[in-house]
Amino acid sequence: MTLPRGASRVRAAFAGADAAGRTALIAYLVAGHPDDQTSLAAATAALDGGADVLEIGIPFSDPVADGPVIAAAGQAAVAAGGGLASAGRLIAALRAAGRKEPLLAMGYMNPLVAQGARTALDDLASAGADALIIPDLPAGEDTQLERLVAHAGLGICFLVSPNTLPPRVERAIRASTAFLYVVPLFGVTGARDQVATTALPFLRRIRTVTDGRVPVAVGFGVSRPEHVRELGAAADGVIVGSAVVAALEEGGPARVRDLVALLANATSRPRRAPDRRRRSLGAHERQSRQRP
């Protein structure tokens, strides 16, 4: 089974970072927050600052997986008329400006299915999105939607958390076409002071089980270079969300760029000893090993 086009592009970005001796840096912003223009400027700034991949949050009225910063930003964007359409517009604007980096749409189920999933997915794909992250869609809950996502040429990222049992971890690995999103803590999005002590062992365990089949990215709580360094050593990518949104609120696109640049500096990692079991990232053939 071949990978959806968007998934391949995402994986290529991970492969590129890896080849350059870095862990990939993924930045997250809420579409249309505080307004369409600033949002575009902030997204551009994040990419200029060195983000390898950008996640664009689809604003939703009831963001149950999000902590105060992102939830408030999302709800403000909804109040300003934002939603799936505004996320699509942001993605299209970035493409129109010539950005080639992978762009993911991250959003809850309801705005995606409200007007028909197939149309929503096609619209996102034609706007230039590469993949999707749906925090309230557990792998296997809606296999028809997973099929529609792939059919639209989009990749998808499923989440695993510390209490996800091995069979479900396996399921998430097989179903994730773009990358596997590891949440190493119990909780919602939001910057934390330090990486939880259990986070690294958990991340390493997941990485081992994944065995190179799909890139592994870690997120929720990352805000400082130390976090990036610590977690980045054990992952293929690090995701920064609330910290970027907060930076935008505090100092506009310029502050976003600075923060991202700071974090990007922390992404280089020491060369790892070659592991003969590890396969290189971005190898599509791996997918043919998966059950359809």
Binding site: P111, A114, D136
Partner: peptide
């Protein structure tokens, strides 16, 4: 209302056409 997904279930919701819960 119209069909939608909120608080973990697919059910009927008071919502906008674009899927924002009202």
């Amino acid at each position: 209302g119209t069909p939608g997904i909120l608080h973990g279930a697919f059910t009927m919701l008071t919502q906008t056409v674009a899927g924002q819960v009202v």
